[in-house]
């Protein structure tokens, strides 16, 4: 008897559905965030080397390519953040008796804390 027919996923499976595409973007985001951290570490290193090295590096960061890179990295970071914030009520279920605490109530504080920290950083930077 013939074995049953196997239908393997093609290499373009992740293009077949929005949700799959999104997950691939999320996986890809790691590359950009890692690259951002490398640039950031270099930045710290340059600070240690003195004002001249630091200034040169800042000028490099203000180049159009690097600005574009940072915008893309920011977009990926936001995608990552939204995904994980929204996953909170799935991963952590809080109960009030028989009722589950509504997901919105679980997600909300994430955004609130994020907003507060972001505001603090902006305040520090602009001060």
């Amino acid at each position: 008897m013939k074995p049953p027919l196997n239908r393997n996923m093609g290499s373009t499976w992740w293009l077949s559905r929005g949700a799959y595409f999104l997950i691939m973007l999320r996986e890809l985001s790691a590359v950009f965030i890692a690259a951002y951290l490398v640039f950031f570490l270099i930045c710290l290193y340059k600070v240690g080397q003195g004002p001249e090295a630091y200034g040169a590096y800042l000028r490099f960061l203000w180049s159009p390519g690097m600005i574009l890179f940072h915008l893309v990295a920011l977009a990926f970071a936001l995608l990552h953040m939204v995904t994980w914030f929204n996953a909170t009520p799935k991963a952590v279920r809080v109960w009030r008796g028989e009722e589950r605490v509504p997901p919105a109530l679980m997600i909300g504080p994430n955004y609130a804390v994020w907003a507060v920290i972001t505001a603090f950083i902006i305040w520090v930077v602009l001060k």
Partner: peptide, 25 residues
Amino acid sequence: TFVGECSTVCPKDVDPAGAIQMAKV
């Protein structure tokens, strides 16, 4: 890898993705 589509297609609202993320935590 938390694609989440299992829960989207579930006709009985079982939310397997939720169950798995919960177990991960």
